[in-house]
Design a protein around this nucleic acid. Structure first.
Lengths: 413, 413
DNA sequence: TTATTTTTTTCGAGGCTCGAAAAAAGAGCT
DNA sequence: AGCTCTTTTTTCGAGCCTCGAAAAAAATAA
């Protein structure tokens, strides 16, 4: 049972709400905050005074206060960029990027490297990440705020506690304890998240009107990933990061999937499956570990150009994704879908079969109303999602509580 | 954005929590309530005094205070049965039951009738329900509490506002505005819910340890229904009651479903599908509107008895449900499943194929750990779920607010 | 009967939010 | 420049709410 609301929780919640309102609105005045939160002006005044005192918020240097109206001008409040920083790390096949993000959400420093993830040992992988973060932190300057949180996004399955990588296509090893290792090395709390989930977080943050209650993000690459947001909240499974859309069954006992099972959606729509079909190989041929981008773009070009095996391969992919989405729509009703990753640049050759399949499912009558947003480059979205995830934690669980980290960014003029 | 927490919300929430604690625990003492809610003894004392004053709670007549310990004996608090009543209505094929439930959750009066739902007009159906409720209320006695809420459960799809029936197999008509009609007739707020969702509510209430965070209830009858609870909350779609498990696609372009599409799980596992297969009819034969229970039990007996078409029909049904569950497990991780309805009495002939299918899916490695609870008779569960749903509303949205209905059940000695 | 133990109530303190009133800060106009 | 008007922000007292400590209540054990 949820625990009772104590008196001090009340202040914490309302502080959290004020911080969230500022993060969302950018530079709102106290009056605007009062309007969105529903709290009274006097309460907002008190809370924002505290937050400024603690160095979490800062009054904007007026300047462009926009359309001058009569009356006392509004004072814009903003997040103090030096109040804190977070680290956003994206680890994918042969690629590792770590970024330092200031409290206002701006990326300050990047560290990009290309470790050979498939051939490294598990501890080698952990060390590569630790080293990247180490390099990043070494480049911090004195006026950057303290690092209060790190978020690591990885392609694959993480545990529901967001502490370890249970399985991933980027490495043969499993159950890698990234969070423990990084926390030991740096003394900063860490979570390990699924990359598609972070994409969903990023999209929700960027376009809250469109990605509001229920929506899906689908990452089309060698594997198929999904981020699932239900009722505005990121859905993670009870044991894992969940949302294994790519491993829903499309055809019982069908094509060979990389996961060892048969008939998964991925076994028809993953890059390796498209490649396999386009080359005329058997559905049961061993999946390739990776297909480079140029090859996939060439296949898509061929599919556009003429009716042949390539076009049929993309058709099969579209059909698999379409029936899968149809099943999701049967469960959750139709909802916006974002198609992310290289596969979205071939979406034009996938879409006809996909829509055809959807129209045969329970969501079919809304086929026309369902639109797909395409985002070919997933990397910035993943980093953005990690940053937002980490900053939200700082907002809600550290700064809203008020106590402790008093000294954070006070040194600001 | 969620609205700010005002000062009076605090009291409302804590009152709601006290009421919920009493409903769950049955006859807890103030000290026990303090322990579960995390509120202080003095707060519980104040709140419970108010609730008793308002006639919502009542001190138990001591009596069996159990194991007498040293010290001042605990005073058991209970829900005052006369504080309010609710009406629980279950409408299914050719069957209508309405029940008056007292505030403690006990059913007091029933009204059972058998309208010919398939052949009635839409307004005839509404009138049948209105008449049943009218008869029920006419039999109320003076010391019953006021009726504060009605919940109507129907097999089929309801809208997300829980106000109308959008589609149902029990009637050819659609978009029937039950809530408006009943509210106009009786002046009591009404919701219209999906029957499987109410079964899920009932199970969560009865066995909260087992049915805690994520679980599924599957109703096997002529159609296949599902109730979906995620993170402890009943999941409903954005436009409808959602959870149309029966219309997830099992075989693309497969057998003819009652919904007009092809390859749905229901087209393999619904009673009509099993019947059709067992009789050696084509997968595309027109689905029967209803198969009586005796026929289905006879088919199951034949399947148990010898290897023939009947056994093959149940095998196909198990396979369809198993792959469907496998897809759910891929999305949500494995979770408890309750199989409800007549179909569960044939579960022994379904289970082998079902488990075989699950083992071929992403949740397969946990196959052994997945257990199925069987509940052959769905009617009491539906009624129970409706009652719980309605009572929870009274608890949280009427009594917790405190104002207004002051006079409710004060007349209690 | 008295001491002990446990539950429940009472009471004052401390916080929090709110509404009303006051103060602040500029625009508009003469 | 000076006055008025408008809007935002702050201040202040009132009213609630929860909490901890102490007191009261109610029963058992000796």
């Amino acid at each position: 049972m949820t625990v009772g609301v104590r008196h001090d929780d009340l202040r914490r919640r309302n502080r959290a709400m004020v911080i969230a309102a500022v993060r969302r609105a950018g530079q709102p005045s106290r009056t605007e905050i009062a309007a969105v939160t529903g709290l009274s002006n006097s309460t907002i005044s008190t809370i924002s005074a505290d937050l400024i005192e603690e160095g979490i918020l800062a009054q904007a240097k007026n300047g462009e206060t926009a359309a001058l109206k009569r009356g006392r001008p509004q004072v814009a409040l903003g997040l103090n960029p030096r109040a804190a920083t977070v680290v956003a790390i994206a680890l994918s096949l042969n690629s590792l990027s770590a970024s330092l993000i200031d409290y206002s959400g701006k990326a300050i420093i990047h560290d990009i490297s290309r470790p050979a993830t498939l051939t490294m040992t598990a501890s080698g992988l952990v060390e590569a990440v630790t080293a990247a973060v180490g390099r990043l932190l070494a480049r911090m300057e004195p006026d950057h705020g303290p690092v209060l949180r790190m978020t690591l996004a990885i392609q694959g399955i993480t545990d529901s506690e967001a502490r370890k990588l249970m399985w991933s296509p980027i490495t043969p090893h499993s159950d890698i304890q990234f969070a423990d290792a990084l926390e030991t090395a740096f003394g900063i709390p860490v979570t390990v998240e699924n990359d598609c989930n972070m994409i969903a977080v990023a999209l929700r943050g960027r376009a809250p009107d469109r990605y509001r209650d229920n929506f899906f993000t689908i990452l089309l690459s060698n594997g198929i990933g999904m981020g699932l947001v239900l009722r505005g909240e990121l859905f993670t499974g009870s044991h894992s990061s969940g949302g294994e859309f790519g491993h829903m069954i499309h055809v019982p006992d069908g094509a060979q999937c990389r996961c060892g099972r048969r008939g998964c959606i991925e076994a028809y729509a993953g890059n390796y499956a498209i490649f396999r079909h386009a080359r005329g190989e058997s559905e049961y041929a061993q999946p390739a570990a990776d297909i480079d981008d140029a090859t996939m773009l060439a296949l898509a070009a061929a599919a556009r150009d003429h009716d042949g095996r390539e076009r049929e391969a993309f058709r099969k992919a579209g059909e698999a994704i379409g029936f899968g989405l149809g099943s999701l729509f049967a469960l959750f009703d139709p909802a916006p879908v974002a198609i992310v990753g290289l596969g979205s640049s071939a979406f034009d050759v996938i879409e006809p079969a996909l829509r055809d399949a959807i129209s045969k499912t329970a969501g079919g009558q809304h086929n026309a109303a369902i639109s797909f947003d395409l985002e070919p480059d997933e990397t910035p979205l993943i980093r953005d999602g990690c940053a937002r995830q980490a900053l939200t934690f700082v907002d809600q669980d550290i700064f809203a509580a008020g106590t402790a980290v008093e000294t954070a960014g006070k040194a600001v003029a």
